[in-house]
Amino acid sequence: MPHISLPEGLTGIRGAMAFRPETARPLNALAEVLLHAPNTLSAGERELIATYVSYLNDCYYCQTCHGYIAAALHDGDEELVRRVKADFQHADISEKLKALLVIAGKVQKGGKQVTADDVDFAHTVGATDLEIHDTVLIAAAFCMYNRYVDGLDTWQPHAEALYRERGKHVAKVGYISASNEYLPPKPAAELIVK
């Protein structure tokens, strides 16, 4: 049972976001820019970074949810997602993404763990400064999202089929649009006299 009375029937972060729509909006806006907006890293690559960090933080909801979004963005390749979590150095991904996952794994432990060597290597295999920046911020942001989801003890049903369907949907429409399905309308609309 969640630590506080979150709205029922909404899984994971969605219950917390519906509880506090004011903070939900910037949280979704950040996810939208980092994971869904156009970027030289594909949305699938960025979702793999999010999934890997959530896996390291042992957050069931986030690693499953973003894992299925990542799979949907890789033509349904769920095996790829499993490999990245288990041993990304031997997964079928680019050398650049491997170097970025190393940085993300360091950020998950602590920002200070990232070394100049990690960054040099990422540069060597083709990562741009912006890609390194976004990797650091995706990893940092998932250290927030994961703690938010688990720290409130949100409802995280173990129902893979549900996450698979949801993943396909979010992969397509993105985070702001998906959040509008369960967040109340913007304040102006709430002022309508009943």
């Binding site: 920002g111 990232v114 920046h133 650091v136 911020l137 990893a139 940092a140 250290c143 927030m144």
Partner: peptide
């Protein structure tokens, strides 16, 4: 936990 990692991670 995000802001701190962002500041130190860069």
């Amino acid at each position: 936990c995000m802001f701190n990692r962002y500041v130190d991670g860069l």
